[in-house]
Design a binder for these strands. Sequence first.
DNA 1: TCAAAGGTTGACTGACCAGTCAATCTAACC
DNA 2: GGTTAGATTGACTGGTCAGTCAACCTTTGA
Lengths: 205, 205
Amino acid sequence: MSTGRAPASRAKAPDKRRLILDAAVRVFARQGFHACRVSDIADEAGVAYGLVYHYFASKDEVLDTLFLERWNVMLELIREVDATAVPVRDKLTAIASFIVDSYQHDPDLMKVIIVEVTRAANSFGNTHIATIREAYDLIGGMIVEAQEQGVFKAEIEPRFAAMAFYGAIEQLLTGWIFDLLPQGEDHFERAKWLVVETVCGGLET
Amino acid sequence: MSTGRAPASRAKAPDKRRLILDAAVRVFARQGFHACRVSDIADEAGVAYGLVYHYFASKDEVLDTLFLERWNVMLELIREVDATAVPVRDKLTAIASFIVDSYQHDPDLMKVIIVEVTRAANSFGNTHIATIREAYDLIGGMIVEAQEQGVFKAEIEPRFAAMAFYGAIEQLLTGWIFDLLPQGEDHFERAKWLVVETVCGGLET
DNA sequence: TCAAAGGTTGACTGACCAGTCAATCTAACC
DNA sequence: GGTTAGATTGACTGGTCAGTCAACCTTTGA
């Protein structure tokens, strides 16, 4: 991931826009989108209040940008994986790995996306529902394919299985976010394995 | 469940407190906790603004009350199930059934609890984290027991499995809430089966 | 050296809304 | 029919905060 201060070595532009986005991640993760003020973001970024409105039309747009940036990377990954000719189990492993790795790499960002967007059925969740749904549909498509190949049981509703799979992963992240589950390299790896093993184990013929 | 206008046949008291709670469920489900005003709740309940503050200390307390009322019913159910001497699969089926039935019976209430409390890592989720955790721990305990009996694989971390199981269910509800999954008696029944079949299938030795 | 374009600043405003409170109503009991 | 306690009312207040804007600064290029 190319998050962070990418063009620092370049001439002079400190890329204030990026600075604001990164600061927003920290603030949203710490205080929550609703509980924080725009001035908190500006302070965290070490930038004047008004500059946030130079780069973004509204407080909402800051969160929208963060979500879309990240979710599109994931959609791309899923599409790539989908296009390869490997067993479903490997495809699902790749997806689970990507999500867990994303959390490991930037827990704050994943916390914000999950808590403030993905699961916010009012507000942002509804705004981005089509984008979110795309991921579920792609996973659902993989399951359909597996059923056609006779690898997965035919009697399961693929959309339901896709949701259950994704939900299991997201809840593990939630466990880490709420500090209900132990974290660390080792646990992250075992979590990937558990999710895929469990779901595939139950779905395979 | 005894939700609704229980003491209507009694003498005269219309139980305004209950009226307010039920109205709040509808308003929170429709607009979200943050987006709605206390006056919306009062209007929905057909009651004066100030009366909300006669029965509740704050807007927060209304949501707290709704959550605790329901979550404690679920905890009781889980404890009862846990105390019986039936196979894990049956215990997990009972839990999945209870949650799905709760949604079927009062989708608005479940939406509010999931969206505004269970998954709100800032605000309410944090306030009730201990209560929420109790449910995960009880499920985790069942899995430990199953491992000791040799029914479930010993190498899986029980807390992780419990989260994955619960997460799968919650994501199905989320699918219904967001209108991403088809609803109806039949789908609800199959969903219960899918979750238990999947998780147990993957965890059993 | 100057001017234009765009980046940056932060004080200010207008709207919004949770929570208060004094007044009014109702019921029950003596 | 009087008194008291509790229920009910809704106008009002105080604080908060998203978004605006006019002024100032920096860079570029002619």
